[in-house]
Structure formats: C-alpha cells, structure tokens
C-alpha cells in the first residue's frame, strides 16, 4: 500500500544518512548522533511529501539540528543530575580522539580540529550541499555571516595543510 512513501523515505535515507550522521556528530556524540538521525527520518515519515520535496536536504538538516540540540540539552541535564562525567561518550575520550586522528588524513585532522561552528557550516555546505541561505536558517545566522564563517574555516584548513606539509608530525595540533 505505502510502497511509494516507504521507497521515498528509504531513498532519502540512503542518500543522506552518512552526511546527517557526520553533521549530527559535530553537535552530539556518535552514539547520540544515530538516535538523532533516526528521529529525523521518523519525522520525515510523518511529513507531507509535497511540502518537503524540492528542499529535502535543507529540511532534513534543519530537523536534524533541532533533534541534536534537544539531545544535547537532555544529556546536559542528565549529567548535572549524576554530577559525574561517566556520561562522556565512549569514543570522545582523549585517547580515542587521538586514535581516530591517526587514521585520518591531514585534511581530516584539520577538519576535526575546527571550531564547532565552522565545522558545522562547512559540513552543511560540502556534505549537505546547502546554500548560504539555508545554512543561515539552520544555524540562526545572517547569510553574510555564513559566508564569513566558511571563509574563516577554509583559510584555517588551508593554513593547516600548508603547516602540516612542513611539520607532518604535528598534524593533530591546533592553531592558536
């Protein structure tokens, strides 16, 4: 009966899940990111197809952002109740981070080292293929602000790449 809808949702899922999971991981930890992305697609199931089609990517990233912000707030509340950092995601400790970095390329390392806001904008642009206007909406910024953040991020990575080619061992470092 609902084959058309199922197909549409599942196609959207295969096309955007990786980008959304990566994006969500800039806002919450990796385990939560999966929940957030699942919720995003559950939301898509309930949405009216005609209202979403044409700007599916922007819709998905918007909802994803909201769910991620919710999840983060919830996690913070939980953490303050338990007043311990046992809630730290299993893959976000310094050693795990270091290990992950070792498997990444120079550019990957530079990308991970970006300030959250810059990384978020960059992923929305390059992975999500969204316009400045769409990114501005999702991040609650002005369009020109988005341009500026992206420019800063790209310049930062450009510097990192240039620096890394001189000092390959310091790849995990961060510019001050």
């Amino acid at each position: 009966m609902q084959d058309g809808k199922v197909r549409w949702v599942m196609e959207a899922l295969s096309r955007y899940e990786a980008a959304l999971l990566r994006y969500a991981a800039t806002l919450v930890d990796r385990a939560q990111a999966k929940d957030v992305v699942q919720e995003t697609f559950l939301e898509l199931c309930k949405a009216e197809r005609e209202a979403v089609e044409g700007h599916l990517a922007a819709w998905l990233f918007t909802v994803c952002k909201h769910r991620a912000v919710d999840a983060r707030r919830k996690a913070q509340r939980l953490r303050s109740l338990e007043d311990a950092d046992v809630n730290e995601a299993p893959d976000s400790g310094p050693i795990q981070k270091l290990e992950r970095r070792q498997t990444l390329s120079r550019v990957g390392v530079a990308l991970e080292a970006l300030p959250e806001r810059e990384r978020e904008a960059l992923l929305l642009k390059l992975d999500g293929g969204l316009s400045y206007k769409e990114i501005a909406k999702i991040m609650g910024l002005s369009t020109s602000n988005v341009g500026f953040i992206l420019h800063t991020a790209i310049k930062r990575i450009q510097r990192e790449i240039a620096r890394d080619s001189e000092l390959p061992m310091r790849a995990a470092g961060r510019t001050s």
């Binding site: 609902q2 990566r22 199931c45 990957g108």
Partner: peptide, 25 residues
C-alpha cells in the same frame, strides 16, 4: 576537503533503526 569527505568511511544507521524507519514510513 571534498576529496576527504568523499573518501572518509561513510557512517550508516544500523538495521534495527532502519527497520523502525521503514515501519514508520
């Protein structure tokens, strides 16, 4: 950057989550 994003392993949702979504759809 594009090359990096394209060559990074792509995360994917696991089967139970996927099934839940298909069910909801």
């Amino acid at each position: 950057l594009r090359e990096e994003l394209g060559s990074e392993p792509k995360p994917a949702l696991d089967a139970p989550r996927r099934e839940r979504i298909a069910e909801q759809a």
